[in-house]
């Protein structure tokens, strides 16, 4: 690794953020819950890291260092999947900078997206995205919000066939276009589906999650906390006594426990700017998961608040 002034500055900034991380957590961590990607049988930690809003910090060196500290805590706790998109502003560059600073390009499961209406621009956008991450190839590329999905899926399938990509996928969020998602799942050989799912947004349970299980499609859950709105609202309420039975010591863990206890869910990707939240999220996947009755209790309780 070449030592440059920039790298020295970044390492110093990361060092400044390190006191936020208890040493025991940096070097020793319980193994997180693992899930299997149906298409390959590959095991992957059930908690990933989203970058929507949280990693879009532009050229702000302090905030970049904080993002790198979040990534450091994430990897130290056993996390692997980081998800981003060309739509997320500077997030891709911030992820790439963090991976370079931490020298963890080998540890990351890179989940990216193609997001353009133009079929012709897709390959160029993917090249640019790969350059920002600094990786040789992506583990997963998804068609973001189904934008230009037919042409982009063809591109991704061709990349996979040529060995330049490991998995293909599509994304949607907040319950949009589930009919089209279902059609694509039935007619195209995708490996991953990304959608929104949490105790108060359960539409995916009706058709898409059972279909994903049936067709061997891995499922990534975005916006588990409704972009923080759900956990902010619940922060005013006391955690119920029975949360411990679900292995949860916080509302975030209770929600993640609910999500991960659905058998079709492979990875949830909460986004955060805080190291303690990363640890808390990954710990949610290290304990017991709620059974069917407890899942319903969680959803009913949170829905009523």
């Amino acid at each position: 690794m070449t030592i440059t002034r920039r790298r020295l500055l970044e390492t110093a900034a990361l060092g400044a953020a390190m006191p936020l991380l208890p040493a025991t957590r940096l070097f020793a961590q319980d193994a997180p819950l693992m899930r299997t990607i149906p298409a390959s049988g590959e095991a992957i930690p059930a908690i990933g890291l989203g970058t929507w809003i949280t990693f879009n910090v532009g050229d702000d060196r302090q905030l970049q260092a904080e993002c790198t500290a979040v990534m450091a805590a994430f990897f130290a706790a056993g996390g692997r999947m980081i998800d981003s998109s060309p739509m997320y502003g500077s997030s891709q560059a911030v992820v790439g900078r963090g991976l370079a600073t931490l020298d963890r390009r080998d540890a990351v499961f890179s989940a990216e997206k193609v997001w353009t209406t133009s079929a012709a621009n897709g390959p160029a956008q993917i090249v640019q995205t790969r350059r920002l991450w600094g990786v040789d190839r992506f583990d997963l590329l998804q068609v973001h919000n189904l934008l230009g999905w037919e042409a982009h899926l063809d591109t991704l399938q061709a990349m996979k066939a040529a060995g330049r990509l490991r998995y293909t996928g599509i994304t949607t969020s907040e319950g949009r276009r589930h009919d089209l998602v279902e059609t694509i799942m039935r007619r195209h050989p995708i490996d991953f589906l990304q959608l929104s799912y949490n105790p108060v947004d359960r539409d995916a349970e009706r058709r898409l999650l059972p279909l994903a299980a049936e067709r061997g499609i891995a499922v990534i859950i975005n916006r588990p906390f409704r972009q923080g709105a759900l956990t902010r609202r619940l922060a005013r309420e006391p955690l119920p006594d029975w949360a411990g039975a679900a292995g949860a010591t916080s509302w975030a863990q209770l929600i993640l426990g609910f999500i991960l206890s659905h058998p079709a869910v492979t990875v949830a990707i909460p986004a955060t700017t805080r190291v303690d939240h990363v640890r808390e999220n990954l710990a949610a996947a290290g304990g017991v998961l709620p059974d069917r009755a407890l899942r319903e209790r969680i959803a009913a309780h949170i829905g009523a608040l």
Binding site: I53, N56, V57, G58, Y88
Partner: peptide
């Protein structure tokens, strides 16, 4: 409206 917000208020004000 907030679906179109790409950044956090903290990042914005730090600009």
């Amino acid at each position: 409206l907030d679906d179109f917000l790409l950044f956090s208020p903290r990042t914005y004000w730090r600009l």
